[in-house]
Write a protein that binds this DNA or RNA. Structure first.
Lengths: 205, 205
DNA sequence: TTAAAATAAATTGTATACAAAATTGAACAA
DNA sequence: TTGTTCAATTTTGTATACAATTTATTTTAA
């Protein structure tokens, strides 16, 4: 029994467009024309419209254009991230199960030793594990929605090898491991603050 | 120049369905059938589908049914609320402008003296003012999305005249007025915790 | 040459028809 | 009864056509 791959056109369309945005093929600010995309995929406009609406809700598309976040947008996004992921980190320090702690450790290790793609996946999983451990679908969902936009920048961060990123992950992991909630929260917030600043700096230059 | 009322069918449909859910006409768990709604409003299914998709994203509809939150759903929602609105309250204690402070005060007053509808509106505005003062559209948007679901319960809370609600608002207002960020945050979180418990209790009984 | 108006083109919004899928309900066997 | 299969019905998903709107282009007047 393989992974059930949906053949619903609007899901295909959603994934197709989303991937092209995240891969950078569709640059920020690009106007998305329903008919063009539909033709491109060999389907009708109806499911394309659906998927565009969905991507609009998620914030990847704004007014039919690929989102092009300003400095301020990023700041706002990270402010929310710091609150939620900060809480999540402190929560982990008290409640995280051994199994997940192992996985967290593994992410840090891969961060040091892996190939580019692996490192990116591991860094994403590091954050996902922490947020997921809250077991709060509302929180997980909010972070998920921000994830796409964040991803565009996380890619940047890893591609440009931000210094200390892995060390920061390790510090957070240690604080969680040693059941230090306040410290874990503080470190997570500081980590995200540095990420933000790196992104902002990179955007200018 | 009057308020431009959109005549776009999918916006009308969105507002129509939303209002019927929030007013309670469409009870929790009710299946929403596109064609029935379309007929009811004298439009076609296309814009109705759009609006249902939007309401699904906002969490008011789940799998074509009016959302019917469990205890756990409410807890999860309020956990996020406490984080965000707690932060917002502390932010207000440092940065809120006099004009908004006045409005906040007015909300507390109306809470004591107004009619039912006025009180409900004032209580909503109290929270909106505090969140709005963060000036963070991402945060405002997240709270907005949760608002609809919360609204169903805030209505409950006011209709059943939860004791001390207005006093708590006043306490928060005082803390903000006197520039006590930690206290404002603490009070806001405690306030929401009590709201949550009242809702949960009421759901059972 | 510039700005405004008119027109043409492109794009989105809506209705409708039909196909695919999900749901219901009846008939039947254990 | 209980549960299972199959057909009937309902509901959703998709394509297509056309209307309304927005955007681009050309024309005209100052």
């Amino acid at each position: 029994m393989g992974k059930k791959t949906t053949q619903l056109a609007y899901v295909q369309a959603y994934e197709y467009i989303r991937d092209r945005i995240l891969s950078g093929e569709l640059e920020r600010g690009t106007k998305l024309v329903e008919e063009r995309l539909a033709e491109e995929m060999g389907i009708s406009r109806t499911p394309v419209r659906d998927s565009i609406r969905k991507l609009e809700q998620e914030g990847l598309i704004k007014q039919k254009r690929v989102v092009n976040p300003t400095d301020m947008d990023l700041r706002d996004l990270f402010q929310v991230r710091m609150l939620l992921e900060g809480f999540a980190a402190s929560h982990c320090a008290t409640y995280m199960k051994d199994e997940d702690l192992q996985k967290l450790k593994r992410c840090v290790e891969i961060g040091r030793t892996g190939e580019l793609e692996e490192v990116m996946a591991a860094n994403k999983e590091f954050h996902d594990l922490i947020v997921g451990a809250t077991n709060n679908p509302v929180m997980i969902d909010i972070i998920d929605r921000m994830q796409s936009i964040i991803y565009l920048f996380r890619k940047t961060v890893v591609l440009h090898k931000r210094p200390l990123l892995i060390e920061e992950h390790d510090d957070i992991y240690q604080a969680i491991l040693q059941h230090q909630p306040e410290e874990a929260e503080r470190l997570m917030k500081a980590h995200l603050q540095l990420d933000l600043e790196f992104c902002l700096n990179w955007m200018k230059g």
